[in-house]
Simulated scan of single mutants.
Amino acid sequence: MRKHLEYYAVRTLLGASRFMPRPVLYGLARLIVERSYAPGGRRERRILEHLALAFPDKSAKDLDRLVEEYRWHKAHFYTEMVLMLTNRMDYRGSIVNLKEAQEKIEALRKQNERGIVFLVSHYGNWEFLAQFFAINGFPGTLVAKAQSKNPLIDERIIQPYRQRFGHRVVERKGALRSIARILKKREGVGMHIDQMIPPPNGIEVQFFGHRAYASKSMAQMKLKFDPLMVPIFAVRKGREQFRILIDEPIEYVADEIDASDEKLRAITQCYTNVLEKQIRREASQWEWAYQRWRKPNNE
């Protein structure tokens, strides 16, 4: 019953938001964020703890400033999600480097001989990023974990939105076979590089100088099928404004290492380093509330 009530509440909110002026939507999102990440609350304490781990040299004042920037970013993210779900988002007009991004997408299409794995993360607005690629003629398959808290919202709102412009969505658990078929057809697949995946499917890496775990699936795909491994980001530059970053494909395959597990670790570390480098550029846009450094269950 509770899940149904939550689902209909979200549907009602989305219906009403179709007619709300943007300033009202942003104001409501800010109120929600202030309440959810209230000073001294559990979520803010977790974010501060993670920021302190990543940036031990920053002062308490600097960390508080980052938390405030993070709140600002979250309010914009929530508002943009409502705008996207209600067909009010301008996917091309929101890009400050539109021509450059489109040219790079076209170049990737010409380079694509073995399939492409897009290395994505919970940075900037990753949902906008996926739809931008689809709108510009590069729909693909998104590997995503089904929402366990409320499957009704996931199945009837989130997944249809992700599929609106041609994307397919596959459940993260057991996705390797589907990904293999996709790459053999020289198509694209988006995989997150910043989730805490414990062994045996995850492997230990260093993230901001601390032990963390990341999925080794991307390294396995690189060694078996040698697809293009392309990091992409939608970096927020203002209200409903983004710069699309499409890095050069990462060709590293750890040829200097013989042991299989160590080879996978080295490749996964390479991808993790790309994410860390981007986070260091504009730290407030990553999802610091995630338990990225959590120990796996068997430790």
Rank of each mutant, 00 (worst) to 15 (best):
G40V: 11
V10E: 01
R45M: 07
R46F: 11
K61I: 07
L13W: 06
Y8A: 00
R35V: 06
R35M: 05
L53T: 13
E34P: 00
V10C: 05
V10K: 09
A16D: 04
G15D: 00
L53S: 13
T12G: 04
L28I: 12
A52P: 00
E34T: 04
G15C: 02
E44M: 10
I32W: 07
I47D: 00
G40K: 15
G41S: 10
R22G: 12
L25A: 04
P21E: 05
D57A: 15
D64H: 15
D57R: 09
R22Q: 13
A60K: 15
Y8I: 06
Y7D: 00
A60M: 11
A38C: 12
D64G: 06
L51M: 09
V24R: 06
K61F: 02
S36K: 14
E44D: 05
E34K: 09
A16W: 05
S59L: 09
L28V: 10
P39V: 03
Y7K: 07
I47F: 09
S59K: 15
P56M: 05
D62T: 15
S59F: 04
S36T: 08
R43P: 03
G27C: 05
P39K: 15
E34R: 14
A54E: 07
R11F: 02
R42Y: 12
A52E: 05
L31V: 14
S17M: 04
V33W: 12
F55E: 00
A16T: 14
V24N: 05
D62E: 14
S59P: 09
I32G: 07
Y8N: 03
D57S: 15
L28D: 02
P21I: 03
Y37Q: 01
P21L: 02
A16V: 12
A16E: 03
Y8G: 00
A29F: 13
L53D: 05
R30C: 03
L53W: 14
L25I: 02
V33A: 08
G41I: 11
A16K: 06
E44V: 07
L14V: 06
P21V: 06
A29I: 05
R45I: 07
E49Q: 14
H50A: 09
A52H: 11
K58A: 09
A9K: 10
P39S: 06
P23I: 08
Y26Q: 08
A9C: 06
R35D: 00
R22Y: 15
A16G: 12
I47C: 07
S59V: 02
F55Y: 08
L14D: 01
E34H: 04
R11V: 09
A54D: 02
A16N: 07
L28G: 10
L13S: 11
L51A: 02
P56S: 11
G41P: 06
L25M: 07
R46C: 01
L63F: 10
